[in-house]
Design a protein around this nucleic acid. Structure first.
Length: 438
RNA sequence: GCCCUGGUGGUGUAGGGGCUAUCAUGCGGGCCUGUCGAGCCCGCGACUCGGGUUCAAAUCCCGGCCAGGGCGCCA
């Protein structure tokens, strides 16, 4: 009788080493592969972190047990109770000789996709059966690295005295400008899904929190259809008072540096699975002025007029010229949002920056406008109505400190850490132009 | 949204007006005691949908839907 309500493993597969020779263990997981050679059966049992071979020689185990194992199907969940056998013939130098096996749940066959890597599947097929796709270690490794990166970011920011905050994702106004928002029904009213915690982070500066961060979803209703855009993404957002853009750039580059180091030391197996050699960048990251970027892009034969945002071709041209991480600074004020502070020496240039990795923008930030009247001015100049910003603007009338901040795309950063080319690879259940399930 | 390309067993593919629609993997059965992408034998399983051209369409044409790549959009 199978005991489903008392299942506990003694070890994960990766914890079983030749040193445990002769020890009894209980392992649980999925049947990765089954090789029946007639008189001996090799069963590869996969769990979260690895695969271990269970070897069933007909002469060493009972006929009933042997027949049971022979009837197993791939991807079924089983418990194996057995004895560790140190063996040079086994993969990893160790295997389990079973004395008892239990089928916990049987898998339906055929599988919607191959979990062993023999036949590759398209991303669309994989996402349709994502839970199965994620059983592959080269896929789950991406998420272990993402998890480690987020952990590292939290530790770093806590150590630097930042307060973690949570801001609403249901918002009333669609007047922030720029990106399209997803409209939703909020009881009898219309509301929207938040595009960014920007205005709330700034209000926390007026609240006297000084240094805040939030790691949360953002929603963009753009019909983009590329390898680097999502309609739901995780933004690592930060805002700090009594400082300028230079200060938050320093924090950002240290945070990125720190995360890469942390992933390198704690995700060795995952990086190996992904065949990634993660290079630790040098600090400080190179700073390139926007004016310089225009010249560099044009020198590559790609047209970029002064005052324009970078086209995809311009980003690629920069990617050809720059290795690793670099900042683009001194952006024209006109192409940046209203809350970006114009430079004191030259108001046509702003205190905004982007952090790039080769041809990919992974973060953008700025010193913000903390002066109420200037902010109202800038809102009007961008063709927006200051009246719809009342609650936000009020925060600037009762003592708002100078401040700066940035937002870092968690998925884009994960692409840099894992080397994957499609941003959908970095989200468990991605939301894009076409996909809303699963 | 625009441009290009495509949609063939569960998965990944070859083919490209008529013949039993190719191959791999998978699945079912058989043989096999050291596999590790196990091997060998037998079997199973497919032309995106709608319309049109034609004696004949999976193949050509039109449209839809879906996907891949590129771009645009992305304060």
């Amino acid at each position: 009788m199978t005991d489903h309500q008392n299942c506990r493993r003694t070890q994960y597969s990766k914890e079983i080493t030749p040193e445990l020779n002769g020890k009894k263990v209980i392992i649980m997981g999925w049947i990765h592969e089954l090789r029946d050679l007639g008189g001996i059966i090799f069963l590869l049992l996969r769990d979260r972190d690895g695969v271990i071979q269970v070897t069933a020689p007909s002469k060493k185990i009972s006929p009933e047990l042997f027949e049971n194992i022979r009837k197993f199907k791939k991807e079924s969940v089983i418990t194996v109770k057995g004895v560790v056998q140190d063996s040079s013939k086994a993969p990893g130098g160790v295997e389990i000789i079973p004395y008892e096996v239990e089928l916990l749940t049987e898998s339906k066959l055929p599988l919607p996709l191959d979990t062993t890597g023999k036949v590759r599947a398209e991303i669309d097929t994989r996402l349709d059966s994502r839970f199965l796709d994620l059983r592959k270690h080269n896929v789950s490794s991406i998420f272990k690295i993402k998890s480690r990166m987020l952990h590292s970011v939290r530790v770093f920011l806590e150590q630097n005295d930042f307060i973690e905050i949570n801001t609403p994702k249901l918002v009333a106004s669609a007047t922030e400008g720029g990106t399209e928002l997803f409209p939703i029904t909020y009881f009898e009213r219309e509301a929207f899904l938040g595009q960014s915690p920007q205005l709330y982070k700034q209000m926390m500066m007026a609240a006297g929190f000084d240094q805040v961060y939030e790691i949360a979803p953002i929603f963009r209703a753009e019909e983009h259809d590329t390898l680097r855009h999502l309609n739901e993404a995780i933004s690592i957002d930060l805002e700090a008072a009594f400082c300028n853009h230079e200060d938050v750039m320093n924090i950002l580059e240290k945070l990125v540096f720190n995360a890469i180091n942390d992933v390198n030391t704690h995700c060795k197996d995952e990086l190996k699975t992904l065949e990634i050699d993660l290079k630790v960048p040098e600090l400080p990251f190179e700073r390139v002025e926007y004016d310089e970027v225009v010249d560099m892009v044009n020198s590559q034969g790609v047209t970029l007029n002064h005052g324009e945002d970078l086209s995809r071709a311009a980003e690629k041209a920069m990617g050809e010229l720059m290795e690793g991480y670099y900042f683009i600074t001194g952006w024209p004020t006109d192409i940046k949002p209203f809350y970006v502070m114009p430079s004191e020496e030259d108001p046509k240039r702003s205190c905004a920056f982007d952090l790039m990795y080769r041809d990919l923008e992974i973060s953008s930030g700025a010193m913000r406008v903390h002066l109420h009247d200037l902010l109202v001015d800038r809102i009007k100049k961008q063709g927006l109505n200051p009246d719809s910003f009342n609650r936000y603007l009020a925060a600037f009338e009762y003592g708002m400190p100078p401040h700066a901040g940035w937002g870092l795309g968690a998925e884009r950063f994960t692409m840099c850490l894992t080397g994957v080319k499609n941003i959908r690879e970095t989200v468990l259940f991605p939301r894009d132009r076409r996909r809303l399930i699963p």
